[in-house]
């Protein structure tokens, strides 16, 4: 590897420093002593929700973590199992019901200020409202270059993420192996996951 010139500003790519340096053992020891794990950084996501809007956070942050060289594990449990069920994962829904933060930027065109008004909860229960809200969210995500859930799982798997289904949820939902997204590595128990996630930062969604 060529030597970096003095004063050369370059991004930190997190690659191991060249061993011939010889001036940093004290710092290296101090860092190792304060970290809980000495290996590369790891993140473990627990996805417990099956609504479209709650499916995306782990996929987006997980993908970002992978591009930053962080090892990523995702455990799909309870309603989160729908994210890896090929029968339904392209049909996850977004509902206004129970979401008091739901307001629409587009409504500013109708009347300025309306974009900050929460949509009345009663409207969320009207027939067709969930389908409309879902379609709208999918369109907005598409505009931002965010792929649909099945394609997102493929992207994560190609980037090296490890995906697991929760055995208890799998049994409870009477799911069959044929319906699992092909990128899922296995159906494992909570204890298995805890073991696999050793030293990882846990994100529960």
């Amino acid at each position: 590897m060529a030597t970096i010139p003095d004063g050369f500003v370059m991004p930190d790519f997190g690659d191991p420093a060249p061993a011939d340096n010889g001036t940093t053992p004290a710092t290296a020891t101090a860092t190792a002593a304060t970290a809980t794990s000495t290996g590369p950084r790891r993140m473990a996501f627990i996805c417990s929700k099956g609504n479209l809007d709650m499916a995306y956070p782990a996929l987006i942050v997980g993908n970002a973590a992978l591009t930053e060289g962080v090892e990523v594990l995702i455990f799909f449990t309870f309603w989160g199992l729908d994210m890896i069920n090929t029968q339904v994962n392209d049909k996850l829904k977004f509902t206004v019901s129970g979401n008091t933060a739901m307001h629409m930027p587009d409504l500013a065109k109708v009347r300025p200020g309306l974009e900050y008004k929460a949509i009345p909860q009663a409207l969320g229960n009207l027939p067709g409202m969930t389908a409309y809200a879902t379609r709208h969210m999918k369109e907005e995500m598409d505009k931002l270059g965010v792929p649909p859930v099945p394609e997102f799982l493929d992207l994560l798997a190609a980037s090296g993420a490890h995906l697991y289904a929760c055995k208890l949820s799998y049994d409870m939902a009477k799911m069959i192996e044929a319906d699992l997204h092909p990128a899922v590595e296995g159906v494992i128990t909570a204890a298995d996951f805890v073991e696999l996630a050793e030293g990882a930062q846990i994100v529960f969604i």
Partner: peptide, 11 residues
């Protein structure tokens, strides 16, 4: 990822 391991997009 194989060509540019670690942080491929930034690299």
């Amino acid at each position: 990822y194989r060509l540019y391991p670690g942080k491929p997009v930034k690299k």
